[in-house]
Nucleic acid binder design. Structure first.
Lengths: 229, 229
DNA sequence: TAACGCTTGTGAGCGTAATCACAAACCGAA
DNA sequence: TTCGGTTTGTGATTACGCTCACAAGCGTTA
């Protein structure tokens, strides 16, 4: 099965398995795990776990399960987490500051190595142990530090311009928190995290269930009335 | 076509169209837009735009396009954004603070109406114009304010417990920023935003393209050597 | 009114992802 | 070595989403 390309959907779940496995290894010291248990920890079903892992190769043992350490290593390697990918944040507002000190990044081996803004009142300030630099220095700093990931945390209007500068500086992976669509060349990967879109999606489902409940209620009343009349 | 349920994938794009339409209405004062232009603004293709919009009903005019204001209204209504959904944030660390003052929420009509933590040194503090309350007050405050959305911004270990409390308080929509899987009853919707997972996915693709580049390079050298030999 | 250019709405086809279900393989016990 | 219990790996099936391509319908012009 190996060397079929790993499906996107699977790539999205590997980090979840990774975290579950780390928990298992650290807290319980488990050496083995079944697809059933891993599925429970990851909040998916067991068949999906097995199929996902099968894309990496046959790393399980029938009748036994998967060796936690070995699987950890394989997923880590497949995700490219054996090397480190220095990241830079552009836009040091509320969100940028929070990201600069976000512990979840360093825990997964991502180092924020530089932070940028254009606001003179922010430049030179220390945030998360780093000094805020002017965006004009981006290209130079990226080259110097081998930055491979750019994180956009600017207002929406600045996002495209910042993306262009990141691309120009040679960055091939961008995580965009600005609520705006950014266009990049095909060899650059952009992922978008849009906080208010998430709320809007929640709103949709909430409204729908509420509408259903209201309709049921109306129906019930109508039936009762009819039965009574 | 109406009254087929709207596919999840479409729901996820409606907020993007919404934003594009708002931009059109505000900045250009355009009254009409074609699926082609909307597609360009949203970063998708025109057929997808048309199919997505067709789930809402036939709101376009052949040969002309869509009326911006009318479409805006329909999407807003479909997403349930005509009413407001008070939200509460639990966990006032770096991320919680940033979210509490995040302008993107209010711009899309979401109001954060209460913020919670368990750390006594944080309780009582003012963040984003609100006073941090103790998590124990959650149920009471949710009832009082009609809170419908819960935002979890705690460390991973606390996430499940907070989710349980939100569910117990009657919240049906949860946005989870903690890097942990949370389980909820089937009538509750959870959406997850996991920042380090996004970076790990970027890492995967970055590593892959880098591996390809390296392999090409090796191949090239090999061929050259062969040609020379 | 008729003809033409433009844009929507959607059926059909295709590719990807999820799920099912079971043979293959392993371990331990007898 | 054989048997029984267990769990993986994967072909087959189903569901879902995307894209294509074109008929249907609108507005405009003559």
């Amino acid at each position: 099965m190996r060397r079929r390309p790993i499906p996107e959907a699977t790539v999205g779940r590997l980090p979840i398995y990774l975290r579950a496995l780390l928990d298992l290894a650290e807290s319980r010291g488990e050496t083995n795990v079944s697809s059933d248990e891993l599925a429970r920890l990851a909040g998916v079903n067991a068949a999906k776990v097995r199929k996902d892992l099968s894309y990496l190769g046959s790393y399980g043992t029938r009748g036994v399960g998967y060796d936690v350490e070995y699987l950890l290593y394989q997923i880590t390697r497949e995700l490219g987490l054996t090397q480190d990918w220095p990241a830079a944040i552009v836009g040091i507002g509320n969100l940028g500051r929070a990201l600069a000190s976000y512990k979840g990044f360093s825990e997964r081996g991502f180092r924020i190595t530089a932070i940028f803004d254009v606001d003179e009142s922010v430049i030179g300030e220390e945030v998360g142990g780093m000094i805020v630099r002017h965006l004009d220095e981006l290209k130079e700093v990226v080259a110097e530090m081998g930055t491979s990931i750019g994180i956009i945390a600017t207002p929406p209007l600045a996002a495209q311009e910042v993306a262009d500068k990141l691309v120009d500086a040679g960055v091939k992976s961008i995580l965009n928190f600005a609520p705006a669509v950014v266009n990049v060349p095909p060899d650059v990967t952009v992922r978008k995290v849009d906080l208010s879109i998430e709320l809007q999606i929640l709103s949709f489902y909430q409204q729908r269930t509420q509408a259903i409940a209201t309709a049921r209620e109306a129906n019930r009343r109508l039936r009762n009335q009819h039965g009574a009349g």
